[in-house]
Design a protein around this nucleic acid. Structure first.
Length: 416
RNA sequence: GGAGGGGUGGCAGAGUGGUCUAUUGCACCGGUCUUGAAAACCGGAGUCCGCCUUGUGUGGACCGUGAGUUCGAAUCUCACCCCCUCCGCCA
């Protein structure tokens, strides 16, 4: 959510952001509603002031005739007030709805473009493996070695279901461990967070109202989170954080659920796109300065890269195009790992910052050195998501006889 | 799933229709006293929104949330959420 004052004063910038993100939010309509809202607000508040004044008189001793007259006057006032309040309530509902749809402003360094085709590559790291044979894809490699079982997966869980077993299962856990330990060493607080969450947490983080197709909802109207970020942010909602807590760096582990509603035709087999996976996620809350956000954004990029580097996986860094940004994101880097079987890079990490877009919705604040309340800035980044990352490892570490080497850095997490 | 008790400021906790500008205590900030501190005493404090003459200004809202009754609700009614105690079921 943006500050309505900012929207009023910089409607051109906001409209530009709507265009850049290829959204359809009527900012002029919002501004119209807003001025109606303020006008009605002033009127109802004036009526209430009269009401309060009359209440003072009722509290004191009053001659019976005066009391009668006042009762009649207040009865009329009540009727008028009820009409205004009803009107105000309608306007407020429409206003809130629109406010939730207003996107955050992309940073100037974000390339304008509609899809991930317009993402801008800024770096490549590592050496793509050279095979003197036709590299197999992760599905063939893993099912042959009984590291994964997709038939059982779909039998039990349905479309996009999977089992990991044997070394495949153990390796997945070792990847979590690698990310987990690496980030704890970097000063992150480890957290296991819930995934079954209240609706308001999704509104607060910007996944609702527009993303409802991508979320699983329960019969109790709670939702399954697609990332630990939702719970980690919700943890601090409606709180005033002691300034000493900032920057708050959290490393969170959780199962992640995604309906993938808009991508039924894509990656229909294998472990790249699944409904249920596990992720180690980095979340940072920092003080409300753009330079702070940028600093921690670069730091998150460094840490996410570090994990891929430890795994010695060839990858590239891209800046996401404006149309590929989420509603609240100011800027996002994706890390894409080289997939030999596809001869292309695939996204495994994304690293974003939001300024106060999320904290304003979730009401997460701190008191600055002047004693003023400020909304914190928030950022988050993937550290390691399995099984997608596992699939990348398997493909890059395959040998000519269909075996899979274990990355050196994971050896210590594995018994044999 | 059943029964009961609760939710009031940073914390504790009073308030059962108007005199509430929410009692009081603790913690906090300022002052008096003191060489300094403590104690004592005096005083002050919240958040959000609006308005203008931008001030030590002014109006409104905030007692879990939302509706309702009323001229008027922390207080009465209803629904929901959350917490506690006990019972049942279960990992």
């Amino acid at each position: 959510m943006l500050d309505i004052k900012f929207i009023r004063d910089h409607s051109d910038i906001v409209k530009q952001a709507v265009k850049q993100k290829f959204l359809t939010v009527n900012i002029d309509e919002l501004l119209r509603l807003d001025s109606d809202r303020l006008k009605l607000l002033a009127e109802t508040e004036q009526s209430r002031a009269q009401q309060n004044e009359a209440n003072q008189k009722f509290g004191s001793a009053l001659p019976e005739t005066d009391r009668r007259q006042l009762l009649t006057e207040m009865g009329n006032l009540k009727t008028q007030l009820a009409v205004k309040e009803e009107h105000l309530k309608k306007i407020m509902m429409a206003w809130r709805q629109l406010m939730l749809e207003v996107p955050n402003i992309p940073d100037v360094s974000v390339p304008t473009g509609k899809t991930d085709n317009d993402n801008q590559e800024i770096k490549q790291w590592g050496t793509k493996p050279q095979f003197d044979f036709n590299p197999k894809n992760h599905i063939e490699l893993m099912t042959t070695a009984s590291w994964a079982n997709l038939e059982r997966g779909t039998k039990v869980a349905g479309f996009r279901g999977y089992f990991l077993s044997g070394p495949g299962a153990t390796l997945a856990m070792s990847i979590w461990q690698l990310a987990w330990q690496t980030l704890i060493t970097e000063g992150f607080t480890p957290m296991l967070v819930p995934s079954l969450l209240k609706r308001e947490m999704f509104l607060g983080t910007g996944y609702l109202p527009q993303g409802s197709d991508d979320l699983y909802r329960t019969q109790d109207d709670s939702y399954l989170a697609g990332t630990a970020e939702v719970a980690a942010m919700g943890y601090w909602s409606d709180e005033i954080m002691p300034i000493e807590e900032l920057p708050k760096k959290m490393v969170c582990f959780s199962p992640c659920f995604r309906r993938e509603a808009g991508s039924h035709g894509q990656d229909t087999r294998g472990l790249i796109r699944v409904h249920e996976f596990f992720k180690v996620e980095q979340v940072i809350l920092c003080t409300a300065r753009h330079e702070e956000s940028v600093k921690w954004h670069e730091e998150l990029l460094r840490l996410s890269e570090k994990i891929l580097q430890l795994l010695e996986l060839p990858y590239r860094v891209v800046i996401n195009a404006s149309g590929d940004l989420g509603l609240g994101q100011v800027k996002k880097y994706d890390l894409e790992v080289w997939m030999p079987s596809e001869n292309r890079y695939r996204e495994v990490n994304s690293i974003s910052y939001f300024h106060d877009f999320q904290s304003r919705r979730l009401n997460i604040r701190y008191r600055d050195s002047d004693g003023k309340l400020q909304f914190v800035h928030s950022l988050n980044a993937t550290a390691a998501a399995t099984p997608r990352l596992l699939a990348a490892i398997v493909e890059n570490y395959q040998t000519s006889d269909g075996q899979i080497k274990i990355p050196d850095v994971l050896q210590s997490y594995i018994r044999k």
